[in-house]
Structures are given as structure tokens and as C-alpha cells.
Design a protein around this nucleic acid. Structure first.
Lengths: 115, 115
DNA sequence: ATAGATTACCTTGAAGTTCTAGGTATGGCA
DNA sequence: TGCCATACCTAGAACTTCAAGGTAATCTAT
């Protein structure tokens, strides 16, 4: 039998960042795009083509709920995190931390010699 | 114009781990599969279907060189890091650290209020 | 002796995300 | 009037990674 691996262990960072920002306050897609770029000092720049599909997916599985709001004649779609979204965020954060810890350890010193 | 984003910013972790391990000593594919699982305490488990193609790609672009070695009647293909591979590893580590730092900051406190 | 597990290599096709590159429409500014 | 910024969206390509196989030799337990 070939080894069973982890289902796509490196993905879900856009999802994580978006949920995290929305857990502070409700925001709209375009705003999220800029907030992520600014707060990571352009280190991570997610285009609208990434953000919008993630928002839609998160709403469909109940992690977000949206409401339309007219601002200066323009329509914005604000998203807020649901209880399910909070749980999802918690899971994403902890698995992200596990992975980064694992990578960091291996990158630091390879001399671990178990048992 | 839509925002320019980073080309696949989350990938290349298998590549990073493999180069890192090989930078310590030459190893063969099957050995790498187990070493990664062991040293990350099963947190990251890369199957052979991931490891072998990465090894082939790294060799093709000059980051690794291989030599066949017969051990107990079996043939193993040992890989060693070249100078180009060392540079590649350095780049991967630093961009990985940039990303994890960026994510960590955003996950920790969203209150950054720039300028 | 022989069945099964382990070692050791490999590839193909599917799955899943993310990226590029568009499209639409309104409002503000020069 | 023309252009840029705001604000929404989607389709198709690109890229990794995954699952699942295939081959073959050695070792182990019966």
C-alpha cells in the first residue's frame, strides 16, 4: 500500500486570512483585497479573482452571511462570520500552526534522531 | 487593471523540505518519504507520488545530482544538492519565512492601522 | 518452499486551489 | 469628455499535490 497523505495540506491560506479579518468586523470583498495587501505589507496580495470565489464558497457552506448595503449610490456586499465560521477559523489557525511548526523544526535542525 | 498577485505563493513546501534534508546528506527517494514523516511527527506526510516527481524536476533544473548505488542487490538512487540547489534552498526558506511571518502577524492582531 | 510484507523505483489521471484575464457598471476628477 | 478608482463578478488556464496504481527484488514467517 502506498502511504496515505494529508489532503492538500498547504491550501486554505486565503480562506484563513479572509475569515480572520472578517472575525474582527464585517467587510466587503474589494476592501478585503486591499486590507490583506496592506496588512501584510504587500507580502501577500490576493487578487479579486481569489477573494470573491472564496467568499462565495464560505457563504455557501454557512461560514459567512452577507448583506447588501448601498453606500454613495454604489452597492457593497458585506460579509460577517457565523458561529460555524468561527469554528472553521479556529481549525484553520491550528492546522496552519501545526504545519508551520513542523516545517520550522525541520528547517532549523535536521538532527533529531528519534528513539 | 486587476491587481497583480503573487505566483502561487503557497506552494513549494515539499521542494523546500526535500532540499533541506538533502543539504545535510545524500538520501534516496524512499528514505525521504519516511524522514519527512518522522521528523514532522506525521504532521506532514508526503507520498511517493509527490516526492519522486519533485526529485526529478529538481534534478532537471540542476538543483540536484543523482547517482545510482547498489545496496543489498537493490538499486537506490541517491540525490545530492548542487550549488544551484543551495541557492534555491536559501530562496525558498526566506520566502517561506516572509509568508509565515505575514500570516502570523495578521492572525495575531488585526489592529495595525498603518499611517 | 512459498505467501506476504517491505523495500525501492516509477507514472498516470483526478482533484483542488490559485492565477490570469477578462467583463460590467457607477462615481469622482481633471 | 475621458480616465481612474471603486465594486462586483466569472471562465479557463496553470500549477501542485493526491490517490492509486504498476514493477520488481529481498526479507520473514510459516
Amino acid at each position: 500500500m502506498t502511504r496515505t497523505t494529508n489532503p492538500n495540506f498547504m491550501n486554505g491560506v486565503p480562506e484563513l486570512l479572509i475569515l480572520r479579518l472578517l472575525s474582527e468586523r464585517e467587510m466587503y470583498g474589494y476592501e478585503l483585497v486591499q486590507a490583506i495587501a496592506e496588512q501584510t505589507r504587500e507580502m501577500i496580495v490576493l487578487g479579486e479573482g481569489v477573494v470573491y470565489p472564496v467568499l462565495h464558497a464560505l457563504e455557501q457552506n454557512g461560514c459567512l452571511k452577507s448583506r447588501r448595503k448601498a453606500v454613495a449610490g454604489r452597492t457593497r456586499v458585506y460579509y460577517a462570520v457565523t458561529a460555524a465560521g468561527q469554528r472553521r477559523l479556529k481549525d484553520l489557525v491550528s492546522s496552519w500552526q501545526s504545519i508551520t511548526n513542523a516545517v520550522a523544526e525541520l528547517v532549523k535542525g535536521v538532527s533529531h534522531v528519534p528513539a
